[in-house]
């Protein structure tokens, strides 16, 4: 076997698979978004952007991402630092913390629904301690704050671990000697975190944030379970166009808008957390 050809032959199957089941449908969706009955047009985009629910769902999606991602980042950093300091039982703790990753997002939404719904655990507890006389329907339009909080909590609970595993791996790559040098030259624990861990973690932070932010823009099942139509997000609108309104052109346009937002945020993250040439570990 020719050694120069071998790598290409080995990646050929997965490349073909991705072209057939990813690239090709993507081109079809893009074509669908940019055409109506009579050829090329921006009509689909005009329609979805002009719809009254679009600004709300865009705002909700961005708000949710803005509330969830920073909390997850802070939590994941804290947890990763703690795990990294553990001498024993480190793997066990990591496995336990990553359990939510093994649960589908719809199931995650339903777990939190069981807490917040009218006959849920929260109402039972509040009733038992006498804080309320009769069950409250927390997930209703009168309690939009609670709806938002429930969705945010479920998202944080469900998807912090994905950042955690990336950051744990990243922190593990930072040589101990840097921390010792920082300690000798006067940096306390907080300074070491801020001046050594954070900057040297930039590549992992990039990966974790890009992944998490893209997932945040695609949030759907958790919102569907907890907020239903009360809390429209971009993905739920896309779903509605495709399956309720049977307007696949509009759904395709929505999908491309979500993609554009994802790409834009990815570029921003990569730019902000870039590592100058010659400055990597």
């Amino acid at each position: 076997m020719n050694a120069r050809l071998l790598p290409y032959i080995l990646i050929l199957p997965v490349t073909l698979f991705l072209c057939l089941f990813f690239l090709y449908p993507f081109v079809l969706v893009a074509a669908q978004a940019f055409t109506t009955g009579d050829g090329f047009s921006l009509e689909n985009f005009r329609e979805v952007v002009g719809y009254w629910k679009f600004p709300i769902s865009l705002k909700n999606t961005l708000l949710l991402a803005a509330a969830v991602v920073p909390v997850q980042l802070a939590l994941a950093l804290l947890m990763a630092t703690m795990v990294n300091r553990m001498r024993r039982g480190r793997d066990l703790v990591l496995y336990i913390w990553t359990i939510p990753l093994g649960i589908s997002d719809l199931a995650a939404g339903m777990i939190w629904l069981a807490i917040f719904e009218q006959s849920g655990f929260l109402n039972t507890i509040l009733g038992a301690v006498g804080a309320i006389d009769r069950p409250v329907n927390f997930l209703s339009y009168q309690h939009m704050g609670v709806v938002f909080l429930a969705i945010a909590l479920a998202e944080i609970w469900r998807a912090t671990a994905i950042m955690l595993v990336i950051l744990v791996a990243g922190i593990g790559l930072i040589p101990k000697e840097y921390y010792e040098a920082a300690e000798v030259f006067g940096a306390g624990p907080w300074q070491r975190f801020r001046r050594i861990t954070l900057p040297l973690l930039r590549p992992s932070l990039q990966t974790a944030l890009v992944l998490r932010v893209i997932l945040a823009f695609e949030v759907f099942a958790v919102v569907a379970a907890l907020g239903g139509t009360l809390f429209p997000v971009l993905m739920s609108e896309t779903y509605a166009y495709q399956f309720d309104l049977l307007d696949s052109g509009a759904a395709a346009a929505m999908a491309l808008i979500i993609l554009a937002i994802s790409i834009a945020s990815t570029l921003v993250i990569l730019r902000v957390l870039r590592v100058p040439k010659g400055a990597s570990i």
């Binding site: 040589p175 000697e177 840097y178 010792e180 040098a181 920082a182 300690e183 000798v184 030259f185 006067g186 940096a187 306390g188 001046r195 050594i196 900057p199 040297l200 930039r202 590592v275 400055a279 990597s280 570990i281």
Partner: peptide, 29 residues
């Protein structure tokens, strides 16, 4: 702690911080 002992150290693998310039490395302490 090390910082209160009036010492400085040169490490075997140098431990020159990769994310800082030479200037910032020397000025770190």
């Amino acid at each position: 702690p090390p910082r209160d002992r009036g010492i400085a150290m040169v490490f075997q693998n140098y431990a020159v911080f990769p994310h800082l310039t030479v200037f910032e490395n020397i000025g770190f302490g």
